[in-house]
Amino acid sequence: MRQTPTVQSPLTLNEIYAALAECAGDLKIIAGGTDLMVLANAHQLEASNFLDIWRVDELRGISDEGDALRIGALTTYTQLIRAPLIQQFIPALVAASRTIGAVQIQNRGTLGGNIVNASPAGDSLPVLAAYDAALEIGSQRGTRRVAFNEFYTGYRRTVLAADELVIAARVPKVKAGERDFFCKVGTRRAQAISKIVMSAKAQMNAASIASIQIGIGSVAPTVMRATQTEALLVGATLTPDLIEQARQMIANEVTPITDLRSTEHYRRSVTGNVLTKFLRQIIEGAEAR
C-alpha cells in the first residue's frame, strides 16, 4: 500500500534548509505547483513527501543591485510582468513571462520553478542564458553562486545537490544602446509549449556587432547558447550576407529532436528564421535612427 504523502510548510529559509538537510532525497519541493501538480494529477509523481515553500516570503521580491537585478526564486510571472525594474532592465523577461500559460499560470508559476524544473522548453530560460544570469544556491552548508549557463548538466539534470535550493537569480541589466529580443514559436500565443523559443541581446558599434548572446530553448536536451553563431557574428559588419550565413549556421548548430510538438527539420529552419528576424530588426532599427 502506498503511504499517504506528508507535507511540511515552513515559513523561513532556515527551516527549508533544515528540512532538506534532514531528509533531502525523500522531499519533493513544491512552489507554485504549475508543473508538479500536473504530474500529480496524472499519477506520474511517485508517492513522496512534500516540502511546500510557498509561504517563505524571503524568497520573493526583486531588488536593484546596481549592474544587475536580484530576483527571488518564488517571484511569479505576474510579478515579473508588473515590475517596473524588470520592464526597464530585462524587457525580454517580461515578454517571456507573458507567453507562459495564461493568467492563471502566470499568477502561480515562479521563476525558480521554471529553472529547477529543468525542461528544455522552459520559456524564461533562454532569457537567463542570453543575459548571462547567475543563480544563488543555498543550503545549510552555505550559499554559492553558479553561472546559469553551467547549471544544467544534461536533460533535466542540474548541478543542485539534494540538500540545496535555488534561492534567487541575479540577472545583469540590459546596457544602454543594447538591443534585446524574445520570440516564442508555439501552436498559439497562450497555453502552448514552445516548438522553439529564443532570447538574444546585441550591442552594435556603428555597423558592426560589438557583442551578441543568443539563448535558445526546445532545440537541445537543455536550454543552450549558440556559441558558434555568436562567434561568427561578433566583430563582423551586419549585412544581409552575414545574416544569411548566421541563419544557416544556427540551423546546424542546434540539435533538436522530432516529438509530438514539432519536427527536427521544422525546428532547425525556424531557429534560423527567428535569428534572422532579430538581426533584421537591428538593421531596421539602425536605419530608423
Binding site: 510548510s9 505547483g33 501538480m37 494529477n41 512534500f50 511546500d52 492563471q104 499560470i105 499568477n107 502561480r108
Partner: peptide, 12 residues
Amino acid sequence: EVINSCLVPVCQ
C-alpha cells in the same frame, strides 16, 4: 488573483 484550483494544493 485568478488561479487553476486543480493545480493548487489546499495547504497553500
